[in-house]
């Protein structure tokens, strides 16, 4: 079945994984109805653990399950998964390189109504800075399924960041997926956009509608480890680089790309959230626009290179 919501894709993939592998276990912190952990709970009640509204304990409990040879997935909103449980992830999971998968659900601004307390705009930066951690952010629901499967199959801690809201699919079931490999969504010869998550579809629209420039779009769904050689190859002969993410411009995809390109002498622009917290909005597109995460902002970033 093709989903158009990353949470549904994630939750159903957990169920599919649970059928294939009895070492998969899932933990929720009273948000199973939102994270879609409830699907796993219904299918495998013995292997789903309700941990109450206590993310720190949930995260270290997952460490203990991993030490028993299980593959635990912990679910919560990204602000809590990456923020409230930061120390538990660092101390009890990442230092030991334990096989725990942390799902940051309702990431970015996607929990539009709840405001800054519930909008993770710095989770990629936090997770990316932790040694041993893999950080993934799927572009759509189809890729969410593939990425969930991929992180279940690799040893070590992984952080997966997914969106709350319905979105269009821009990848297809048949596209090959390799964890760690940035993938070409559209080719072009003047500029390249590296995008992650929901910004992939925005970047595609920008690349298709921009006048007078040929723009390549690359989906970076594995933010860490970042395939530096592939990133360098994608920017060869390009006049400039735009990074687009629903995240602070500090420490996220843009920072990772800039680190990778540190010897390439290419101008880089960042389309992201400018060192601000989120706020409440009536709908998701309105909020993305408020924070400058639109097709027009990406086009403006590209055109700014022409004025250099």
């Amino acid at each position: 079945m093709t989903y158009t919501n990353q949470r549904l894709a994630y939750g159903n993939t957990l169920v599919a994984l649970g059928k294939e592998n009895d070492r998969i276990v899932v933990l929720d912190a009273d948000l199973a109805a939102s994270t879609m952990g409830k699907l796993f709970e219904a299918a495998f009640p013995e292997r789903h653990f309700e941990m109450g509204i206590a993310e720190a304990n949930m995260t270290s409990t997952a460490a203990g399950l991993a030490q028993m040879g299980f593959i635990p997935f912990t679910n919560s909103f990204a602000v809590f998964a990456a923020g409230r449980s930061y120390d538990q992830i660092r101390q009890t999971i990442a230092i030991g390189c334990l096989n725990v998968k942390i799902c940051g659900s309702s990431a970015g601004l996607s929990d539009f109504g709840d405001g800054s307390t519930h909008q993770a705009v710095e989770d990629i930066a936090i997770m990316r800075a932790i040694p041993n951690m893999t950080v993934v952010c799927p572009a759509d629901a189809i890729e969410t399924e593939k990425i969930t499967r991929a992180i279940a199959s690799v040893q070590g801690p992984c952080y997966i960041r997914i969106c709350r809201n319905d979105m269009e699919n821009i990848t297809s079931e048949d596209d090959p997926f390799v964890l760690g490999k940035p993938s070409l969504l559209k080719d072009g010869s003047d500029y390249v956009i590296f995008a992650t998550g929901v910004m992939c579809s925005v970047a595609l629209k920008a690349a298709e509608s921009i006048k007078n420039h040929s723009v390549r779009v690359v989906n970076v769904s594995t933010i860490k480890p970042l395939d530096r050689a592939a990133v360098i190859e994608f920017v060869r002969d390009m006049k400039g680089v735009v990074c687009a993410e629903e995240h602070s411009i500090i420490g996220g995809l843009g920072s990772a790309i800039a680190e990778a390109l540190r010897r390439e002498c290419k101008p880089i622009e960042f389309v992201g959230i400018e060192d601000k917290f989120g706020c409440s909005g009536h709908n998701y597109p309105e909020l993305l626009a408020h924070y400058g995460l639109t097709e027009e902002h990406i086009i403006e970033a590209i055109e700014s290179f022409e004025r250099i």
């Binding site: 995260t59 409990t61 460490a63 028993m68 009890t92």
Partner: peptide, 20 residues
């Protein structure tokens, strides 16, 4: 059996092992 040192986390890890 567990990485500890940031205090207050051992009991949670122990619970995970107990469940396992």
């Amino acid at each position: 059996e567990a990485g500890t040192g940031s205090l207050g986390q051992g009991l949670s890890i122990a619970l995970g092992m107990s469940l396992g």
